[in-house]
C-alpha cells in the first residue's frame, strides 16, 4: 500500500504540456509510476482536444466552422465549453473564451452547447481560446486519474494552476506580483485547488504599447499592472476561470460569484503595504 507520508520520498515529474510545465507529485509506491504515466496521458489528451494551434483539435475545428454550423466535439470539450459559457454569463463577459481579438464581433453567447453533450452550434464564425480554463480542467482530470489508480494523495500543478487530493498538507507558495522571482508562503493546502492570474510573465512591449496575455474582453484592454489574483476553489477548473474574473471585475461583482462556487480570492494589488480589508 502506498503511504501518504513523505517517507519514502515522492515521485515528482514535469513535462511540457498545455503550453506550460505540468508537474505531478505522488508518493512513491508500487503503483505510482504507472499512475503517473496515466495521469500525464490524460493531460496529453486534454492538450490534443483543446490546443488552439492545432487545426484538427476540437478548438481548431470550431475556429474553421462556418456560421451556423454544428461541430461535433469530445464530451470533455463540451464540458469545458459549457463551463466557460457559464463563467462568461455570470461575469458579464469579463471571462469570455470567444471574444478573442481575432474573433470579430462574436461573443460567448454565439457558441451554443447542444443537449447531446457532444456538439456545439456556432452562431457566427468565431475563434475560441480555452487558455483560461482548459489547464484547470486538465488538472482536475489528472487528479481524477490518480485517485482512480488508488493513490492516497498527490498534487498536480499545470504552470501555477494546481490541485491536491488526499489527507496530506502541501505547502503552497505564490509569486510576488511585482517581483515574480520572490515567493510568499500561503501556508498549506489540503484537498484543494488553487489558481493564480497575473500578467508578470506575459507582459511585454508590442508596437510601442504594453500588452499581456490577460485581456479584458469587454473593452479590449490588457492587464499590465503588477497585480495578481489567487483563487481557492473546490475544482481547478473553477479556480482557473475565477482567477481571471477576480482580476477584472470589482469586489462587489466578484463576491457573489466566489460564493456561488464556494471559492475565496486572495489579491496582491501592487500598492504599498495595506492591511487586508477583511479576513
Amino acid at each position: 500500500m502506498t503511504s501518504c507520508s513523505k517517507n519514502p520520498p515522492d515521485l515528482r515529474r514535469a513535462r511540457p504540456l498545455l503550453g506550460t510545465l505540468v508537474e505531478i507529485t505522488v508518493p512513491a509506491g508500487p503503483r505510482s509510476e504507472a499512475a503517473l504515466e496515466h495521469a500525464f496521458a490524460t493531460v496529453v489528451r486534454v492538450h490534443a482536444l483543446m490546443n488552439a494551434h492545432d487545426p484538427a483539435s476540437d478548438v481548431g475545428r470550431i475556429g474553421t466552422a462556418r456560421s451556423g454550423a454544428v461541430v461535433r466535439v469530445h464530451p470533455w470539450t463540451w464540458r469545458v465549453l459549457t463551463a466557460a459559457r457559464r463563467f462568461a454569463e455570470i461575469s458579464g463577459g469579463a471571462f469570455d473564451p470567444v471574444a478573442v481579438p481575432s474573433s470579430g464581433r462574436a461573443l460567448w453567447s454565439d457558441l451554443v452547447p447542444l443537449p447531446d453533450r457532444r456538439s456545439v452550434r456556432c452562431r457566427r464564425r468565431l475563434l475560441i481560446d480555452l487558455g483560461g480554463i482548459a489547464k484547470g480542467f486538465a488538472v482536475d482530470q489528472a487528479v481524477r486519474s490518480l485517485r482512480r489508480a488508488g493513490l492516497p494523495c498527490g498534487l498536480v500543478n499545470a504552470g501555477g494552476d494546481l490541485r491536491s487530493f488526499g489527507p496530506r498538507a502541501w505547502p503552497l507558495h505564490v509569486r510576488a506580483a511585482a517581483h515574480p522571482g520572490e515567493f510568499a508562503s500561503l501556508g498549506t493546502i489540503v484537498h484543494a485547488a488553487v489558481a493564480t492570474s497575473a500578467p508578470y510573465f506575459s507582459r511585454h512591449r508590442d508596437h510601442g504599447r504594453t500588452v499581456s496575455a490577460l485581456l479584458d474582453p469587454r473593452d479590449g484592454r490588457f492587464v499590465t499592472a503588477s497585480v495578481s489574483a489567487t483563487v481557492f476553489a473546490p475544482t481547478a477548473l473553477a479556480a482557473d476561470a475565477l482567477a481571471k474574473i477576480v482580476l477584472l471585475v470589482n469586489r462587489a461583482t466578484a463576491e457573489p460569484i466566489l460564493r456561488r462556487y464556494r471559492a475565496r480570492a486572495w489579491l496582491q494589488t501592487g500598492k504599498p503595504l495595506s492591511l487586508p480589508h477583511a479576513i
Binding site: 501555477g160 507558495h173 506575459s202 496575455a213 495578481s228
Partner: peptide, 10 residues
C-alpha cells in the same frame, strides 16, 4: 514548492 502563479511559457 507548489507555486501558484501565472503560467510560465514552455
Amino acid at each position: 514548492k507548489n507555486i501558484s502563479g501565472a503560467t510560465l511559457s514552455s
